[in-house]
Amino acid sequence: MEFFFQQLTNGLAVGGIYALIALGYTMVYGVLKLINFAHGDLFMIGAYLGLTLLTALGLADYLSPFCVIALLAVMVLILVAILGVVLERVAYRPLRQAHRLSAVVSALGASIFFQNIVMLIYGAKFQVYPHDLMPRTVVHIFGMPVPLIRILILLASVVMMVALYTFIQRTKVGTAIRAAAIDQGAARLMGINVDRVIALVFVIGPALGGAAGLMVGIYYGQINFTMGWIYGLKAFTAAILGGIGNIPGAMVGGLMLGLIEAFAAAYLSVAWKDAFAFCVLILILIVRPTGLLGERVAEKV
């Protein structure tokens, strides 16, 4: 029972991280119909920026751990968001009228660019987050020990997701984003500045991705310049699983994928866990071709 519970909490924590990254994919897709292959690399840059800021500013010396992390998170969120906006401006905006696949190639190019610039700056080796950043507190839930950090990660990601969901559903700007996702032309006619909306999406998505990067750094303690691809692929899978373009879908998909992976690794086989996640994805898509929560777009055929 305890083993099961450990897998459950671990799966939920990892799933929360996947969900945060998946939100970036799904929001960009919703508005631009573009798979932003560079999104995983923005997430990776978030992890590296967190580490750099942590060591460069020496915050851990005179602040409590939670203040340090909160401060780091704010800085990483802002920096990665800026990077996201620049990426959109340079690599995607000129291609807005072009074929969809041209923008995909541009995204792949941006991804290669980011990966290699990080590799040139930090080197190809794994970088290690300080071990004593988070106190290794263990809390007991139903009498079973759970590392505090897992709960915090899950909590933080849920808070961010709820905040995003409320923002999208309840505010005027959120409505503008939804309008632009449904029909850009009509949104423009209603007086919505679509370019602004797209820029905003490239603020929110990368910011969430950067936060996820920081979480991975703190949770696993080591980061690598290739991890953007690995997590990006997982998160993209999660977004598709939930139905791409659908915000609650990305959350459900992310958490589900985290759980599937955790349980598959624990009860079936560690070596096959990635394959297992893809198998579940394929099976779900065969039954529901637009993902779990994806709207049934009036299929053209």
């Binding site: 190639v105 190019g109 290669i112 660019f113 980011f114 290699n116």
Partner: peptide, 9 residues
């Protein structure tokens, strides 16, 4: 590879 990525864009 850095240049390669930029050239693709």
């Amino acid at each position: 590879m850095l240049v390669f990525g930029a050239v693709m864009i």
